[in-house]
């Protein structure tokens, strides 16, 4: 069974991902001090999504899983994007 195989990530990869997450956290804090107007939410969400993608792909091993599982996670993200998008759609036209 494919899902029973455990991929062991190298220390180098794990360290690189950690460094990237710390860097993105720094960027998140830095950006929050700048008023980007309409882009405030978009930038914040883009940063949060990027960070969560790193965690899901590497620390939660999605990168090494089968296509079916990747598809399911993609569907979840798609639905979440629709939820957020349609809510903001109301705000944008209010």
């Amino acid at each position: 069974m494919e899902h029973n195989k455990h991929h062991i990530m190298s220390v180098k990869t794990a360290t690189l991902v950690l460094a990237m997450l710390l860097f993105l956290t720094f960027v998140t804090v830095a950006v929050s001090r700048i008023d980007l107007g309409y882009l405030n939410v978009i930038v914040a969400l883009a940063l949060a999504t990027t960070k969560s993608l790193f965690v899901i792909l590497f620390f939660m091993h999605l990168k090494y899983e089968n296509k079916m599982l990747k598809l399911f996670v993609f569907i979840c993200f798609l639905i979440l994007a629709i939820f957020i998008g349609m809510t903001f759609f109301d705000v944008a036209y209010r």
Partner: peptide, 21 residues
């Protein structure tokens, strides 16, 4: 069914465009 939630909110004051969609 997951895309129709705001039909509970037609009189809430949300945008007319959202009401239509």
């Amino acid at each position: 069914g997951s895309l129709v939630w705001a039909h509970h909110m037609f009189t809430s004051g949300m945008s007319d465009t959202a009401v239509l969609i």
